[in-house]
């Protein structure tokens, strides 16, 4: 097998070259610790009949595994761009993924056809709120301080962001 050592040497060389090349880290961005102690409110359009979601349902929606509301309207997921503390919190608390895994998950879901539409990315809480106000099937997240009457705040497992034991927090909960 004369080709064996050559292929092996080329693999090692390729790995070393690629490792030496400057580039940004992509492994753990999603687990960056946030500083705010606020809760994140899950917001939907005022016309959406849903009032409460279980945490599992919320997770499935944010992973694109549910594409329709019970009334048949398509779910439009609104997320904030990578690096925003709100997004980091959602990935950590709800999706339990880092940035790279989340992107791969959606890319794979779109590729298999199981995810019907990719999320919309909006850069500011005001933008998220306006989008949710305008789009009947939209769901997004903002800090509780950014909520106003134009959108509806969902209960998660029966709890509002102001309630004790509400699960979607900006800051990582201490491990039990």
């Amino acid at each position: 097998m004369q080709f064996g050592p050559r292929v092996l040497v080329m693999f090692v060389a390729a790995v070393l070259l690629l490792k030496a090349a400057p580039g940004r880290s992509f492994g753990g961005a999603g687990y960056a610790q946030t500083t705010s102690g606020q809760s994140l409110a899950i917001i939907v359009n005022q016309s959406n009949p849903v009032e409460n979601l279980s945490f599992t349902e919320l997770r499935r929606i944010f992973l694109g595994e549910r594409s329709h509301w019970p009334n048949g309207r398509r779910i439009t997921l609104v997320i904030m761009p990578p690096g925003e503390p709100e997004r980091d919190a959602i990935l950590r608390e709800v999706c339990r993924m880092n940035e790279k895994d989340y992107n791969n998950h959606f890319l794979h879901g779109l590729f298999t056809g199981e995810v019907f539409a990719s999320p919309k990315t909006l850069s500011t809480p005001v933008g998220v709120r306006k989008f949710v106000f305008n789009v009947p099937g939209a769901i997004g997240y903002v800090r509780t301080a950014d909520v106003d009457d134009s959108v509806k705040v969902l209960r998660i497992d029966g709890l509002l962001p102001s309630d004790k034991d509400y699960k979607v927090q900006m800051q990582a909960r201490p491990a039990k």
Partner: peptide
């Protein structure tokens, strides 16, 4: 119009 915003608003920048 509001309708066109509803139908096509993918980002604040686009709006």
């Amino acid at each position: 119009t509001q309708v066109s915003q509803q139908a096509t608003t993918p980002s604040e920048a686009e709006t």
